[in-house]
Each structure stands twice: as C-alpha cells, then as structure tokens.
Write a protein that binds this DNA or RNA. Structure first.
Lengths: 213, 213
DNA sequence: GTTGTAGGAGTACGTCGTACGCCTACAACG
DNA sequence: CGTTGTAGGCGTACGACGTACTCCTACAAC
C-alpha cells in the first residue's frame, strides 16, 4: 500500500441525474434535440462539464437507453406456461419503450450494451430452456423472438399499419396497391397491443409446434 | 397554348447517377461518411449542386435506400405453396440489403417511401390473400412478417448472435449470464441464412396453424 | 445572334461534437 | 490550521456538418 497524498474534489453529479436529464431532453425535444449543449443546459451546467461523466455523445445515448429499459422487470414470470412467460417478458419491454418512443431508433444499436437487455435475454432463455429448447433450436428461437420484438416495436413507433403510417398507405393509388390499401383500412380497427401480441402469438405457435415433434 | 420563349439548360445529372454516387460513398465510408460534400466530390460537382436534384439530405438518403432495394424482384413467386412464396420474398430483401449493409439503419424510417418496398408488401399480401388470409388476420400476419424481416435484418447486421456480437456476449460474466453465454457458443455453428430462415419458418408455421382452424 | 431560364460554383452562417487550457474547490496530510 | 495535489467546472475555439443565398454561365428556342 502507498499513502494517498490527496483526494480529489467529489463529483457533483450522479450518472443517474445525467441520465434523467438526458431523458427529459429526449422526451421534450426528440432524438434530434438530444445534444450535449441541451443536456448541459437541462442540468444547469456547462456543455463540457458533461465530459467528466461520459466519454462522448455515444455514451450519453447508451445512458439514456439504459435509463428507459432499466424499469423493466427481468424476472421470468413463475408458475405460468412458458408461452405466457415469453408474452409477459416481451410486453414489459414494449411498455417501457412506449413511455419514451423517441429512443426507438437507438435500440438496435445499443441492445448489446444494456445490462437490462442482457438480463432480459437471460430471462427469455431461461423460459425457453425450461420449455425444452436446447442447442441450435434455442438459438433460432431466441434470435427470432429478439428480432420480432425489436422489429415490431420499431414498426409500431415509426408508422405502423395501425398508426400514423396507415394514412400514408391508405392514400396510395388504389389500382397499383389494392391489397395494401385494403389492409390499411382493415388495420384501422386493430389496436397496437393486439398487433404486437398477435404477431408474437404466431411465433409462439410456431415454437410450440417444434416442441411437439 | 402559349409560346414557350426559351427552354432551360438541360440537366447534367440523372437521379440514378446521384443515387449511384451516394451508394458508392455509403459503401466506402459508411453511413456517417454519407455527407452532401462527400457525394458532391464523388460526382465531381459542387456540394450545393446536389440541391438541384434533392431537397435535403433526407431525400438523398431516400434515394440511396431505394437504390439498394430497387433490384428486389417484387413478383410473387408463381406455382409454389404460399409459405414458400413468402420465404422467397423475404430472402430477396435480405439478400439485397446484405449487399449494402450500411443502409440497414435507414430501413425502418424509409420503408414507407420506397416504391419497391410498397410493391414488395403488395406481393406479400397477394400471397397471404391467396393462402386464405383476410381481414384482421391478414393485418396481423402482414405486420408480423414485416416486423420480423426488418428486425431480423437489423439483428444480423448490428451484431447478431451469429455475428460479431457473439464475441461480446460470449465474454459476459459466466455466472450472471450462463444461458446467454451458452447460447452464444451454440450460435457459432449457425449460419445467418439459417437463423433468418429458421425464425421465419416459426412465423410461417404459426400462420399455417391459423389456416387450419 | 438574342434572350430568358435554369444550372453550377462559391461564400457564408448557424449548430453540432469535442479538444484544450485556465482557474478553483476540497480531502488528506503536516 | 496551512499546504498540496488532484480533479471539477467553465469558456474558448476548431473542424465538419447541412443548407440559404448570390453570382455567373450555358444553352434551347426564337
């Protein structure tokens, strides 16, 4: 052991405060408004002061993503059929993201760096393993679920069939896109939760059939 | 009719040339390198000259996305079982995007503006309709397929289980994420095509079950 | 030729991320 | 309680971005 000659001045901000401020900016001004200057102003500190806490903007975004996902309960639901467990886990992520839709574009890139997402993935795998999936079958099941959840959440918030995008599609030339137009009309009566859950059920049914064989 | 006093100077660039140049920049320098200046330089023209052809950077990106997707054959495969038709259509998009992975982050946002994607969607709906899907069942089937295809393609190129991301996950603390670590190891022997196709098959099996009832 | 329109180049502005340097606050030591 | 060294906080400044605006120029129709 060597003697410590001096202790530095203590930090005046916590990472949690920083994340909260960045999320407030994101919710208020959208992803384009999430700048170092804006977050600095939100905290009443200087722009460059943020660099005492994060290496760059990338790290700030990672902090925001984690802040949004952190409330997700990553415990596998106990005592329910495995498919219900997966449904529950998927819906928890969808709900958390729905509270802060502006993070949606960040999710694909940051999904590996979020401890919460990793814990969530571990929980999904626990349910799949408990259901009897192993080896490459489990790999494909997991990947398919992850792909669907991420993709479907993006569809929902970046103009899904049942969303603002419906109007765009409904306005297409009827003769060139008759089925898209008809589907857009049908989509008007489907609420987002049912779209998300309905698609997930298709995947779960497919998985169930794998277990039967 | 009124007499035309003068005809303007003809355009020296075609939108196709512009799209090709932008795509070349994207392939070479990635999405961050796709700037108005870089595309101008690529064409040997001035930066501002591009604004004669596109309103803003957004429109340039739309041009690139369309350029990447344009080669996709959007004719529904004839004379095959409906599930094979969907598989084919999905794989065509996956292959086209795989040739230019840097566009992946743009896909979710621009999917509504691409004529090719719209034609592709119409083809998917034609296959689904031929298989017997209608109404809200068709809405959910379409949305699920679109969500899966977009999500899975992103997983593949932004660090999927079977990809560069595998290493990251394999390096996780073994005691906290035992299943993720094991799955990452199993994923090493699964090629991306099988991951994509395997997940899609799950969805198609789920859809087939809907038709049986 | 002459003429009118639109093309092309260049300049310039505001905003972004962030490198860097200055001064200051404060915990641990004598 | 004074000294000291580290790190915090702030401000300035730079390069790159998107793009508005101004000039000059090329060319098709007369």
């Amino acid at each position: 052991m060597y003697a410590v000659k001096a202790m530095p001045r203590p930090r005046s901000l916590t990472p949690a405060q920083l994340a909260a401020a960045a999320l407030a900016v994101l919710d208020r001004d959208g992803l384009a408004g999430l700048t170092m200057r804006a977050v600095g102003a939100q905290l009443g500190t200087s722009t460059m002061g943020l660099y005492r806490y994060v290496a760059d903007r990338d790290e700030l975004e990672a902090l925001v993503v984690e802040r949004v996902l952190e409330p997700v309960d990553t415990h596998p639901p106990p005592d329910v059929p495995w498919a219900d467990g997966i449904r529950d886990l998927a819906e928890r992520v969808r709900r958390a993201v729905g509270l802060h839709p502006a993070v949606v574009p960040l999710l694909p890139a940051y999904r590996h760096r979020s401890p919460t997402i990793l814990r969530w993935g571990e929980a999904v795998l626990a349910v799949l393993t408990g259901a009897g999936f192993t080896g490459t079958g489990r790999v494909i099941a997991f990947r398919a679920l992850l792909g669907y959840v991420v993709g479907a959440i993006q569809m929902e918030h970046l103009g899904a069939l049942a969303g603002p995008g419906t109007a765009v599609i409904a306005a297409l030339p009827r003769d060139e896109f008759p089925l898209l137009a008809a589907t857009a009309r049908d989509a008007g009566v489907v609420v987002p939760e049912d779209e998300f859950g309905g698609g997930l059920d298709l995947l779960l049914d497919g998985l169930a059939r794998r277990l039967d064989r």
